[in-house]
């Protein structure tokens, strides 16, 4: 679980104030610095919308697909196993009566969709791990906000100065 070395260049700014990090994100975007990552100790709708464009790979379609797979798999499994045991006492109902099988299929649908949702979230966390080593500060999980701006070496000093002007309490160049 050792952190991978970061081979990028940029500025990590730490803010003690939500509004200031929002202003810094907007300023960085206006200056053409689009490779940026904002950090927050909690979900903040405005910061997320400002700093993180919606991903093409959403969780919803993935969960839906997993749920649909679970539904089909459960129906196939229940019908197939029932057909393997055709002497089952069914009390006058057809051997393959759909209502009871739909109950089982619904439960498996939910199970697969939920597992896929949680799995996708876990993957997102794991995929962010290489970035976390150098471009992270433990204060981000506590109360501080952060902004990592990737930029050419020639612009690092200017970006750090701008961040200071916008109220960053600390700027770290990487």
């Amino acid at each position: 679980m050792r952190e991978a070395p970061v081979r990028v260049c940029g500025v990590l700014a730490v803010f003690d104030d939500r509004e200031r990090v929002l202003a810094a994100v907007r300023r960085a975007k206006a200056d053409g610095l689009l490779r940026l990552t904002a950090f927050a100790p909690a979900y903040d709708c405005e910061l997320v919308e400002t700093a993180s464009p919606p991903s093409m790979l959403g969780i919803g379609p993935f969960s839906l697909s997993a749920g649909a797979f679970g539904w089909m798999a459960a129906l196939v499994a229940t019908i197939w196993t029932t057909l393997q045991w055709p002497v089952l006492m069914v009390g006058g109902k057809p051997l393959i009566a759909m209502p009871p099988l739909l109950v089982v299929a619904f439960e498996v649908l939910i199970l697969f969709a939920a597992a896929a949702t949680a799995g996708m979230l876990a993957l997102r966390g794991i995929s962010a791990r290489p970035l976390r080593g150098a471009v992270y500060d433990p204060r981000f999980s506590d109360g501080s906000f952060g902004l990592w701006i990737e930029c050419p070496v020639s612009r690092v000093a200017a970006v750090a100065e701008t961040m200071h002007e916008l109220g960053a309490v600390e700027c770290r160049t990487v």
Binding site: F39, Y43, I59, T117, A118, I126, R132, Y136, S141
Partner: peptide, 24 residues
Amino acid sequence: FGWSGTAGQWRYFRSAYTLMAGLI
């Protein structure tokens, strides 16, 4: 799980949490 609280992670988190709430 490598959580670092980036805006992208929070976007995914909220989306997953809401979806999970609906499922549950």
